[in-house]
Design a protein around this nucleic acid. Structure first.
Lengths: 206, 206
DNA sequence: TCAATTCAATCGATCGATTGATTAATTTTG
DNA sequence: CAAAATTAATCAATCGATCGATTGAATTGA
């Protein structure tokens, strides 16, 4: 029963609150109360409210690019590479939907320049990897020539769309993404759809 | 040179500010200053800050469903119907990207129940129309049997993705979505991509 | 004249941030 | 080793600013 240090508990509380209430909608007092820390501890450790936010984002981004890069260096077929990227990307986003929502909100606001830049850079890197994979696939003749950037928007947009409104996808069925098992089912369903979609779309017709 | 009444100018200013700064990030004082109205005019006409927000959303939603319903009743091929829906949906979203972003942010926050419900209802209706079209297409044998809800997520997600980060799609090219002409080019490119994608994906293999 | 608008002034509440004091932990020194 | 000095961590209290909302008086137009 080891309790986390104050710094960590502030980060955890902040992440939960930011995810649920948004950045502006979360007060430092809430973060303090939720984390059991004194208000001034927030400024002591992170300088400001925005500092907390940036740190939450940093934790999330860390390791994202590494996974993609390792896939890119695999010596496998372009389609297999793309499928791997889709699987990794989907798993990561679906494993923490609220945080992903938060990042999307902030990137669409462009109100806090520093964190917006950080997010865009991270996303840019990810997109570049996917773009290279598809480009190579087309050059090798493994893929049909298509609008690469648009296909990337389709892949990312589909995942985001499912993550943002899972109830709109699953309503009518018994899925409840708050149940881990059901979220896993939804994730698998999403991956299966994207695999089928990009395979059908990218496979050249003889 | 007819100047709009205070009520209207408040709505316009509020829409612009909410779109740029978010709901929490916009103060009633900003709305008052931007619209040239006195602060208390906001409460006089709309009761509260949230009242203004709801009215902005209402204006946007109005007419959305009507367009979809008219398409659904057209006596044309399923694929033509779907293409029409894609065109209409894309045009509408791309014609006012900031407002669309704002609605996405609010729907992902679920913090203001009334307006969240309103948005979800509107979106639900739209999705139902698309779902019916695809269902009919599959039943007629015009479409391959696929995961309908997931394909809808793909269509909506792609459009949203392009609307949310156009710079990530167009960077490297000369497109600037702040120039009307360029935004139109991007819109056409998006529609072309989606048409190609759904056609390839839904057309049964003989 | 009278109801509909408009306004300056102000309400209590809450915001993010800072202060100075206090305690806990660590390092330095004799 | 133990006392002293230093640093890190925590706290209650409070700062000025701003929040959304309200008041009551002034102004307008029919």
């Amino acid at each position: 029963m080891e309790k986390p240090d104050k710094r960590t508990s502030i980060l955890i509380a902040a992440q939960n609150l930011f995810s649920e209430m948004g950045y502006e909608g979360t007060s430092t007092r809430q973060i303090a109360k939720e984390s059991g820390a004194n208000m001034s501890m927030i400024n002591y450790y992170f300088g400001s409210k925005e500092g907390v936010f940036l740190e939450v984002i940093n934790e999330r981004i860390k390791g994202f690019k590494a996974q993609l890069d390792s896939i890119q260096e695999d010596r496998i077929l372009p389609l297999e590479k793309l499928v791997k990227v889709i699987e990794g990307y989907t798993q990561r986003i679906m494993s923490d939907i609220p945080l992903h929502k938060m990042m999307l909100r902030e990137i669409s606001l462009a109100q806090r320049p520093e964190m917006c830049l950080k997010l865009k850079d991270a996303m840019s890197g990810n997109m570049q990897v996917i773009e290279n994979i598809i480009e190579n696939g087309i050059a090798e003749g493994a893929f049909k020539p298509i609008d690469i950037r648009m296909l990337i928007a389709t892949i990312m947009g589909t995942i985001t769309s499912v993550a943002t409104m899972p109830s709109k996808i699953t309503e009518g069925s018994i899925l409840d993404i708050n149940i881990p098992k059901d979220k896993e089912i939804l994730t698998d369903r999403l991956i299966a759809h994207l695999k089928d979609l990009v395979t059908t779309y990218l496979t050249p017709q003889k």
